[in-house]
């Protein structure tokens, strides 16, 4: 457990010293959302109607942005091979790196989301659910993304390939995430959507590191 936490701390320290990943993800998230009022016009009603979906799609793309480098640097400088030789199981390595990725890129998105909701004129009832769905949803995005990052390790044009592999698998998260907010805004209970989202997280938490570890082992063979 200490080794697991130490690995998380190492990745966090690396990300914070470089300092770019977290800020780039948030800036991309904000810019992406801000583009929509220019695209569809600034009418408050239209913006309020599409706010939930726009914020979710932007969050999805922002979390995809830095996934490519989840294992890339460690793979290139050889530290991934050292990690695979350590007593820490490969699944735990994947989980630790995914957790660090989520803390660096996912959490800032959750913090920034209410601000964007204000910009898009979303009703105040939606704010709590928005933050809640993103808190449950972004870890799923990071978990599913870790599989793709492990699979495309060493591939040609890995980044483009990664989005091709991962985006279809993101669709259920998007549906239930945006669905919960829409339900809350329309005066319905968001509970079923949130429960399904929680179920996805409960499924992805053990399964994604397992698949990611299998893919990493293939890459290191």
């Amino acid at each position: 457990m200490t080794r697991f936490l130490r690995l998380v701390a190492r990745d966090l320290r690396l990300a914070l010293r470089q300092g770019s990943d977290a800020t780039i993800a948030v800036m991309f998230f904000v810019l992406c959302v801000v583009l929509f009022p220019f695209g569809v016009g600034p009418e408050p009603n239209i913006l309020a109607r599409i706010a939930a979906g726009v914020i979710w799609v932007a969050a999805l793309l922002a979390s995809l942005l830095s996934l490519e480098r989840l294992f890339q640097n460690d793979y290139e400088d050889g530290s991934l091979e050292l990690l695979s030789l350590s007593t820490l199981p490969m699944e735990a390595v994947v989980l630790a790196k995914t957790l660090a990725h989520w803390l660096v890129t996912g959490v800032p998105l959750i913090v920034a989301a209410p601000l964007l909701a204000v910009l898009l004129n979303m009703d105040a009832e939606g704010f709590g659910v928005l933050v809640l769905t993103l808190s449950v949803g972004t870890p799923i995005l990071s978990l599913i993304g870790s599989i793709g990052a492990a699979l495309t390790l060493g591939a040609r044009r890995g980044g483009v390939l990664l989005s091709l592999l991962i985006l279809p698998l993101y669709i259920p998260v998007l549906i239930f995430g945006a669905g919960a907010i829409d339900a809350a805004l329309n005066g319905l209970t968001p509970r079923p959507h949130l429960l399904l989202l929680g179920g996805l997280l409960a499924g992805a938490l053990p399964l994604a590191p397992w698949a990611g570890a299998a893919a990493l082992r293939q890459a290191l063979e």
């Binding site: 495309t152 040609r156 091709l164």
Partner: peptide
């Protein structure tokens, strides 16, 4: 989504210089 999975699999298999590695990644 199934259609995209097929396309993603085919792209992944052909994305590596070592065909063996591509097929193993595709299997996962």
């Amino acid at each position: 989504i199934l259609f995209f999975l097929y396309l993603g699999y085919m792209a992944l298999v052909n994305a590596f210089d070592d065909p063996q590695r591509g097929m193993r990644a595709g299997n996962v």
